[in-house]
Nucleic acid binder design. Structure first.
Lengths: 204, 204
DNA sequence: GCATTATTGCAGCGATCGTTGCGTTCGGGT
DNA sequence: ACCCGAACGCAACGATCGCTGCAATAATGC
């Protein structure tokens, strides 16, 4: 059981935790993984149910069916826990498409991103992670920036021209995240696709 | 004394509180205003000094030289207080420029906006307000959206063509806020000015 | 100037938070 | 199958939070 998603957030993802079996950590055994999954799920659930102020360490522990001491010892601060949850939630959940053309890739990827941020779960986690310093905020976007960069690089290796990562960030990532955070309506996939037109020269 | 800024955040602003004398509130007398100013300033100060987790009602009251009960009674929740502080901080602090051309207006306004968000104070307030629901987040941007709309409307009344408010939001506001929130380096005024090129057709 | 009333200060309360020391249980290697 | 050590549960502590009586103060209208 590697963080089975029990219905609260039906969200497609490829791998659940990035560094699960890579580094030979002291003891990534069955129970530790189980506890971590329960705690992560508890954070997500409490974040959707009530306001962020009620998200406290004992509450998380109670929801997860775990003793509060465990949560304190493993994660230390609520901020670190939120950063960990955010990193786990926003890594490996989107796959970079390969439609053959840069435009197609970007359109599909941006639409997927916008759809992903439709989930109130995601928005709540981003908000909470942001409140705990820059690290938590970066945890929500670094993976996405890398994916964007990889698509642009692939186009260049094809021999085509591609804009800067910086400009792509400003044109695609920034609007999607801005809408999700600052407006009640997160933005539709069609709108997200149209963002690509502002980045790439028109098709022909 | 209407929230005299005592050095902690040297920030130019036009009016301090928008709805100060409009509605005949029960008793906006001298002491109430003084207390509110002290509390607002205390929030800003504590937000820059320590992490957001230590921002608690008694701490704010102590810093403001006010009894905690006062803060509880006037604002109720920490979230409401943060929303109020954010609304007060981000209203009337930027003036819409009038350079004669839409491009010039947008360039200067966006650069001003980016400079404004360089202040760690502002970023901390945005982060904190965001964590308390959508209302607090909107409080940071509604005024800016209106300013942007007014500039575009003015260009149209001049007879010129102007892009949609939606597109201007995506091209200008979103990148600036995104950088301020999710990256360690908030973005320079020159970069902000260059954003206008992605929105408007090149000068000639 | 004086009465009225919103607003603040004060003291104290229950509840919860965050931490620590120690015993117990479970996972991993031989 | 065994042992070792990491991870967890348990109980208790001090500190702080959030709230609610009641008294005092100061701003407004006459």
């Amino acid at each position: 059981m590697s963080e089975t998603r029990t219905g609260t957030t039906p969200h497609a993802r490829a791998t659940d935790d990035p560094d699960a079996g890579t580094v030979p950590r002291p003891r990534p055994g069955g129970r530790s993984a189980r506890v971590r999954a329960a705690v992560h799920r508890a954070v997500a659930e409490l974040l959707t149910e009530g306001p962020a102020e009620h998200l406290t360490m004992p509450a998380i522990a109670a929801r997860a069916g775990v003793h509060p001491t465990t949560v304190y010892r493993r994660w230390g601060t609520l901020g670190e826990l939120l950063a960990a949850v955010a990193a786990s939630r926003f890594s490996g959940d989107l796959v970079v498409p390969d439609t053959g053309s840069l435009r197609g890739d970007l359109e599909q990827w941006t639409a997927d991103l916008a759809t992903d941020l439709t989930d109130p779960d995601s928005i709540a986690i981003i908000r909470a992670a942001l409140s705990s310093g820059t690290e938590g905020g970066c945890a929500c976007t670094t993976e996405r920036q890398e994916q964007l960069a990889s698509m642009l690089d692939r186009e260049r290796s094809r021999g085509g021209a591609a804009p800067t990562v910086e400009r792509a960030l400003d044109a695609l990532l920034a609007p999607v995240y801005y809408r999700a955070l600052f407006t009640p309506a997160p933005g539709t996939p069609d709108w997200a696709r149209s963002l690509v037109d502002t980045l790439l020269p028109r098709p022909a």
